[in-house]
Amino acid sequence: MATSTSPRTGRAQTPRPARRAPRSHLAPGWLPYVLLAPALLFELLVHIIPMVTGIFISTLELTQFYVRRWLDAPSAGVGNFKIALDFDGAIGASLLRSFGITFAFTICTLALSWALGMFAAVLLQRPFRGRNVLRTLFLVPYALPVYAGVIVWKFMLGRDNGMVNALLSGLGITDGSTFWLLGNNAFVSTVVVAVWRLWPFAFLTLMAGLQSVPGEVYEAAAVDGAGMWQQFRSFTLPMLRPVNQVLLLVLFLWSFNDFNVPYILFGQSVPASADLISIHVYQASFITWNFGVGSAMSVLLLLVLLVITAVYLPLSSRRMRDA
């Protein structure tokens, strides 16, 4: 920044025609605010104001009778939070279980997506025949509209006419009569589908990150006799640390907030093992029409996400500084 400002301020001091002065590019004033205003306006309308409203709604006894005139709904105080946090009650217990499942799902999806993305990015780092074709091919699951990709999986995971059972029984692994979309198998299916959709993003980001690792580093390492695995551990991983810091957070948030995969796979009847938090709040709100309790759950979710981010960011930055 410093290098580009100094010549400009220097020039402003030299005498020049007066009518030019107001056009000076650095002139602060109102222009940047005008340029930002439209974006800010829509962010406020769609994100910030509704979020604040949501906190307000969480203190209301808002059921379907008040939807059209929700401002008239009676106050519930902290009653909705008491219901949501009463882990002995049915609503609280299922919310707690949903949080647990969401954490398990997030860790599995994050770890597998990152590992596959890293694996593919390293394998495709150096030129060979067919590299560009594979690089493009691997991005296809991410490019597909989410409902199209997930609905194919729904078909594939069907018990009687699905490809997965046909494949597994063809290979002699199972007898081909597994219910993949019921019971605990639903959890496995959700993770696999989420990883299939998400890993190309990890791959894309890590591939971009690897391009910034200078080739000389590897040549120097090879001269020193470092093996492939050593090179990966001592050069590639540390070089990718800034990329990973952002990537892991993004993967975490996307998995944690995932709504599409369970919604498209299961529709209205989500098995308990795949009851991710977004789906849980959605059903609590729009299936039972209990908006007050649904909003209280949303606020709790917001708090959890804030705590996680607040813990993660300083922690990962410190590790980066230490490196």
């Binding site: 769609v46 509704p50 979020m51 949501g54 939807v67 929700w70 977004s278 959605y282 908006f291």
Partner: peptide
Amino acid sequence: MFPGILFLLPLYLI
């Protein structure tokens, strides 16, 4: 970073 579900409901009401 926030899930859509967080502001879906209030936005709907707004």
